[in-house]
Design a binder for these strands. Structure first.
Length: 113
DNA sequence: GATATGACCGCTG
DNA sequence: CCAGCGGCCATAT
């Protein structure tokens, strides 16, 4: 497994309950601002390797673009609503208020190890 | 090794 | 404000 994926998973695991973030924000935080797409790919593989709360990761508009990759089409939305996040038309309501940015919420990312 | 695909993002018009 | 286009990066075939 590439380190990039691991870095992504590390961040996703740190998302607080009831908050969400975006693919691009994660990509920026781990030092790959142009790799937002690959973050999505990492999420696809996430459930295979580790258990990360992928339902807390959406695109920059707050749209649940990845809901079809969950077991049920409604699962992602239900998980979010369980945490107090309202979803309407596959989109998070008041996305700005739930958005959690790792670049400001976490200490600067340590590039190595 | 080349080509195609995707849970994206930002800039233009 | 909405739509379209290109770029970027890691897998899959």
């Amino acid at each position: 497994m590439s380190r990039f994926f691991n870095q992504v998973y590390q961040v996703v695991k740190k998302i607080p309950e009831g908050r969400v973030t975006t693919y691009g924000a994660i990509a920026r935080y781990v030092g790959h601002p142009q790799s937002a797409r690959t973050v999505g790919y990492a999420m696809n593989a996430a459930h295979t390797y580790t258990d990360v709360p992928a339902h807390r990761v959406v695109n920059r508009k707050g749209l649940l673009t990845g809901k079809h990759h969950f077991q049920g089409a409604k699962l992602m939305q239900q998980l979010l609503e369980n945490e107090g996040i309202s979803v309407n038309q596959d989109q998070i309501v008041d996305f700005d208020r739930f958005f959690w940015d790792p670049t400001t919420a976490l200490p600067p990312f340590e590039i190595e190890i």
